[in-house]
Design a protein around this nucleic acid. Structure first.
Length: 261
DNA sequence: GCAAAATGTCAAG
DNA sequence: TTGACCTTTTGCA
């Protein structure tokens, strides 16, 4: 379930559980050069967009989960390694396992900085500058739906947030970037920050009105969490029109053709 | 038991 | 624009 909120949540959890401790690092699968950081003290874990950075002195473990990468973790002794286990951390405070990432590599600090330099503003970063994204959007005649997913425009937004964000603001996914008003963008940007922060808190993406009244104790039914994402062929929650789906740049785009005309 | 799908990215043509 | 890649889970026989 990796959009930006997932990575920021992971960074926080790993920071809390492992930072300041020497970590036993291994790669049962053998596809990660664990010996480069094995036994080093973990200084800090941070996230930018969908990227995770774990600093072991001057060696940075860079992880990108891709479409189905996943961390699992626990306290006490780790379980016997099963399946394709790319990276395992073991410490007195517990363990964490990583499977299926697109990237899991050791970088020099300058290389890690270069990764971030290629990305647009991350709404989850304190002081993130939404106008930087808008400048790129305004210069493009590409559909807004595609621009929102472009990590060089905006870092951390994936297929769920883009579909839901467009719906919440009644925006036509195919509107060219250059036709988006500054005032519209300002509203969209601040809404995106709120949505993604809620995502970090709850660990999942909830964009329906239930998301507006954040009450952790009150569980939202999974089915109600989205307006349009993966609701192809079902009636729009607002006006009953059937939700449409179309593949755009290789990804499934969902929208309500009347609400978002 | 096997194919398809999944909140992603990159490189080739 | 397409295919390749990383792995697990789901759905259908």
């Amino acid at each position: 379930m990796p959009e930006g909120h997932t990575l920021h949540r992971l960074a926080r959890e790993q920071q809390r559980q492992f930072a300041g401790l020497p970590i036993e690092v291994s790669s049962p699968q053998g596809r990660f050069e664990a010996q480069l950081v094995d036994g080093r003290v973990l200084d800090s874990v941070s996230a930018y967009g969908k990227h995770l950075f774990a600093a072991f002195g001057d060696r940075i473990v860079h992880v990108h989960l891709g479409l189905y990468g996943k961390f699992t973790s626990g306290i006490g002794e780790p379980p016997e390694p099963r399946g394709a286990l790319r990276m395992r951390w073991t410490a007195p405070s517990g363990w964490t396992d990583l499977r299926g990432p697109t990237a899991c590599e050791v970088l020099a600090p300058s290389e890690a900085e270069a990764v971030v330099a290629r990305l647009g503003p991350d709404p989850l970063q304190r002081g993130a500058d939404g106008t930087r994204a808008f400048e790129r959007i305004r210069r493009s005649r590409a559909p807004l739906a595609g621009l929102l997913m472009d990590q060089q425009v905006l870092a951390g937004v994936g297929n769920v947030y883009r579909a839901e964000l467009l719906f919440r603001h009644r925006l036509d996914p195919y509107r060219p970037g250059r036709e988006v008003e500054a005032a519209t963008w300002a509203t969209v940007w601040s809404d995106l920050i709120a949505l993604m922060r809620a995502g970090v808190r709850s660990g999942r993406i909830v964009t329906t009105e239930a998301a507006d009244r954040v009450r952790p104790s009150r569980r939202v039914v999974r089915d109600d969490a989205h307006y349009v994402y993966r609701r192809h062929g079902l009636p729009c929650r607002i006006d009953g029109t059937l939700i449409q789906m179309q593949v755009l740049a290789g990804r499934k785009l969902y929208w309500c053709p009347t609400c978002q005309a």
